[in-house]
Simulated assay, not measured.
Amino acid sequence: MQALAGKVCVITGGAGSLGLAAARLFVDEGARVVLVDLSLAALEEASRDLPAVQVMLVAADVSSAQDTERYVQLAVERFGAIDVLFSNAGNFGTVAPIADYPLDIFDAVQAVHVRGALLAAKCAVPHMRDGGSIVITSSVAATRGDAGVYAYITAKHAQVGLMRCLAKELAPRRIRVNTVHPGPIDNGFQLAVEQGLGEAIGADGTEFFNGLIPLGRHGRPEEIARSVLYLASDQSSFVTGTTLMVDGGMSC
């Protein structure tokens, strides 16, 4: 039996590797999916192999209240009430000493990760079916602190607080809310992070991260997506308010 048969799922950050991997898996499991990202062209390119009858593409800025209201309304108009919200949009920012950290970059990262996740829930929850699921992509970064990574790590910690508040509020409706915490993923987003780190430490950033992971490698988007599917589906019917680590043991 398909785990998401007939369910309506909204995925932000839909053109990225994790959003797309989740979309493919959700479609295979019977869902109708609304993919949201900043660029329609990127969405169209990424989703070529997905069945148009099950997938809707919407270009939107997740930090904009107006854009968020619009993509939620379009999702409801096309497919009906929402069962799953996968709040996955993200950006990294930069690495710099606190005295030099650019405030505009700090604000931009909070706007996407924290404001974006809050807006998604604020606009989607009134249109969600009871018994649904909200999954927020946080990170292993939410379990640690690293000098210079002020915007990203702060945002990832904040998402956990948001998740816990939502989990308490929405429990009477049986809407479960959880965060998923990937470690380094083998994708373009992580590669850009590692190139910046490599320049800062004078070493190979990818090998540096592999050395921190007990399993000794980066995760694959498909592996993280399977954990998202677990949280999105009724397989996790008694799981809410939790932080699911999918990091190869990096947070041990």
Rank of each mutant, 00 (worst) to 15 (best):
residue 141 A to T: 14
residue 180 V to C: 11
residue 108 A to N: 11
residue 133 S to G: 03
residue 179 T to R: 00
residue 104 D to A: 12
residue 148 G to R: 06
residue 122 K to I: 00
residue 161 G to Y: 07
residue 100 D to W: 00
residue 120 A to G: 15
residue 172 P to E: 04
residue 143 T to Q: 14
residue 117 A to C: 14
residue 161 G to Q: 05
residue 173 R to E: 05
residue 157 H to W: 15
residue 147 A to P: 09
residue 176 R to N: 02
residue 122 K to S: 01
residue 157 H to P: 03
residue 132 G to N: 07
residue 120 A to L: 02
residue 108 A to W: 06
residue 161 G to P: 06
residue 176 R to V: 12
residue 150 Y to N: 11
residue 134 I to S: 03
residue 148 G to L: 04
residue 101 Y to A: 03
residue 110 Q to M: 15
residue 171 A to L: 10
residue 152 Y to S: 03
residue 122 K to E: 08
residue 113 H to P: 02
residue 174 R to Y: 08
residue 154 T to L: 07
residue 149 V to H: 13
residue 179 T to H: 01
residue 131 G to E: 10
residue 162 L to Q: 04
residue 145 G to T: 10
residue 145 G to M: 11
residue 105 I to M: 11
residue 105 I to S: 12
residue 100 D to H: 08
residue 158 A to W: 09
residue 153 I to A: 10
residue 132 G to Q: 08
residue 122 K to Y: 14
residue 169 E to T: 13
residue 158 A to C: 12
residue 151 A to E: 09
residue 141 A to Q: 05
residue 146 D to W: 11
residue 129 R to Q: 14
residue 167 A to Q: 10
residue 177 V to Y: 00
residue 175 I to Q: 07
residue 120 A to M: 02
residue 177 V to T: 10
residue 169 E to R: 12
residue 171 A to R: 12
residue 180 V to H: 05
residue 164 R to Y: 00
residue 143 T to D: 14
residue 141 A to G: 12
residue 113 H to L: 07
residue 157 H to S: 04
residue 163 M to Y: 01
residue 112 V to R: 00
residue 167 A to V: 06
residue 151 A to T: 06
residue 167 A to L: 08
residue 163 M to V: 02
residue 175 I to G: 01
residue 111 A to V: 01
residue 117 A to D: 07
residue 117 A to T: 08
residue 137 T to D: 08
residue 140 V to E: 14
residue 138 S to V: 01
residue 101 Y to C: 03
residue 155 A to L: 09
residue 173 R to K: 14
residue 177 V to D: 00
